[in-house]
Design a protein around this nucleic acid. Structure first.
Lengths: 311, 311
DNA sequence: GCCGCTCATAAAGGCAGCTTATGCCCTCAT
DNA sequence: ATGAGGGCATAAGCTGCCTTTATGAGCGGC
């Protein structure tokens, strides 16, 4: 109030947590409903709140964003141009939240679910939530439980009949399991945009990759296995980190070149926080596979999920 | 508690809005901070709240999700396995929120910004927020304003010196503007997974595409222009809709085949709500271009943004 | 053995959002 | 024309959640 404090607050608020500048999920859902139904009251009914609540919520969203989002008229509400744009951006958040929800629900129902899935970390992180959403769309009443771990853990669960379907990303299929390839993944070399390799014209050669210290996942991880095999076990770690996220963060901060699944860095490449460096002479491809105990072909919900994942 | 009412609520809550089952953005940001810093109190300090608030918030998040997220110890907190997974999913939401924020901020500061951008709808929807985030990372103090419209509107703004840099996606560059290609986009034919075309083995031929009624954007849109040109003006509309989102929704619901930018359907293809149908014999490629008034090469912030967008 | 760090718990306050209760405006049909 | 219905805005009161302040307890390093 006394002048200085307030001013500083608003001038430097640029970095101040997103949650104060982005409407909450409920408001975004409401906006999507208004866009779809063309009416504040209709949207309110759909969400189980009253019309004044919806009206007030949209209004406070407009105040927060400083932009008019809907044109109100006595015969309904339509989005403004800016509102249409905002709604599209909001849809991305809500979709990410839906994926989060699908994953979290699977994580919660540890036992006695109709479909028990065991998956490697990369698949659980980047692909499974989408599959679960698709599965829920087709079979809304299927309760799914998820367990994430490395290939060995996935195999163990399947063989102990504690999981109905597994997903692995290693080079070889654990013994005792049948499998089918559901997708292909490539490891790629990435650096921060400022790194010398980001400006190379020629592709990297395997020998360069083998002699340069790299940011890597720890030994034993699926990602590391593939790289070591491609280089003949010669990868030289600059740092070894135990999660894909940590490797990404280190690469973005410019610590050095990293080797990662292309699944993990799509976003970063798109917004140029990372740059992909082409490599020649070695194959960094790996198969993503669905697995199950030999002879026990997936049936029921497991079969449904499997059919969703095959391109 | 009294049995029936409560039970029904929890059993049928499956469709009940996301916002009740997904933690709010503040909580997700807190979780990311805890993951990064390894301490509840540290995360609290970073977000400008007190340690008990952070503790309580994480705890209520765990209650909401039904999963333990962090292992507390007298010398710090580490994520559990499930917590690591949840944190990765949460990161997607937060990133989408950051993109939303970047876009919303540009939309708000209509005038007197240091960088005024005019962009076509598709680019504004799918690409610009990412670019703005990247720009903010490199030049945190650049205020950006955004105006979205069709190619003609973009040209008009640029020529009236009401915008510093434009982005268009049509076939031809508006007169009076210089341009550079910043990316390539392809239109693709998509259908719901249940549609006969989704199970075709052979690619579609242009003649089939021309004789089949399609879900299309309205005439005059950049997307429609490209399709009409490729087919020689012969596209037969099943329905004409005025937004990409509406076209997607119609296609997902099985109304028929649609033609859309691949930018717009990445998510839907990944989770198999839509299936891409290959086409042969015609080119549905189009260039995405940055444009500016002839002779006035972008300088300053506009040049920074331009350099971000070039692959 | 004390000090530093960590986290947990309890009590009290504030703010945001919801609901109920109205009123106004417009359109359409009688 | 006139009344019915749908749509939105405003006001007032309440509830609930999240926050802060204040404190306690466990573990480790010096």
């Amino acid at each position: 109030m006394s002048g200085d404090g307030e001013q500083e607050n608003s001038r430097f608020e640029v970095g101040g947590s997103l949650s104060h500048r982005v409407p909450d999920l409920g408001a975004l859902e409401l906006l999507l409903a208004v866009a779809r139904l063309g009416s504040l009251g209709g949207a309110a009914r759909e969400l189980g709140i009253t019309q004044p609540a919806a009206s007030s919520r949209v209004r406070s969203m407009e105040r927060q964003l400083g932009v008019a989002l809907v044109d109100r008229s006595p015969r309904g509400s339509r989005l403004t141009d800016a509102g249409a744009l905002v709604t599209d951006w909001a849809r991305r958040i809500v979709e990410a939240a839906a994926a989060f929800d699908a994953g979290a629900q699977a994580l919660r129902d540890r036992r006695d679910s109709r479909l028990r899935v065991a998956a490697s970390m990369t698949i659980a992180e980047y692909l499974l939530p989408g599959w679960l959403l698709a599965l829920r769309a087709g079979r809304p009443d299927t309760a799914v439980s998820l367990l994430a771990g490395n290939s060995a853990a996935v195999a163990e669960r399947l063989l102990a009949d504690e999981a109905d379907l597994g997903f692995v990303e290693g080079l070889n299929v654990p013994t005792g399991l049948d499998s089918v390839v559901i997708a292909h993944d490539h490891l790629i070399v990435v650096t921060a945009p400022g790194h010398p390799w980001a400006r190379r014209r020629r592709a990297l050669e395997a020998s360069e990759l083998a002699t340069t210290p790299l940011i890597l996942r720890e030994e034993g991880s699926g990602t590391r296995q593939v790289l070591d095999a491609a280089l003949g076990g010669l990868a030289r770690p600059l740092i070894e980190l135990s999660s894909t996220t940590a490797v990404k963060a280190a690469a973005v901060s410019g610590a050095g070149p990293a080797v990662l699944s292309e699944l993990a860095v799509g976003e970063e490449l798109a917004m140029r926080r990372l740059v992909s460096v082409p490599v020649e002479g070695i194959s960094l491809a790996r198969d993503l596979r669905a697995v199950w105990p030999t002879g026990h072909r997936p049936v029921g919900p497991a079969r449904d999920l499997l059919s969703l994942t095959r391109g």
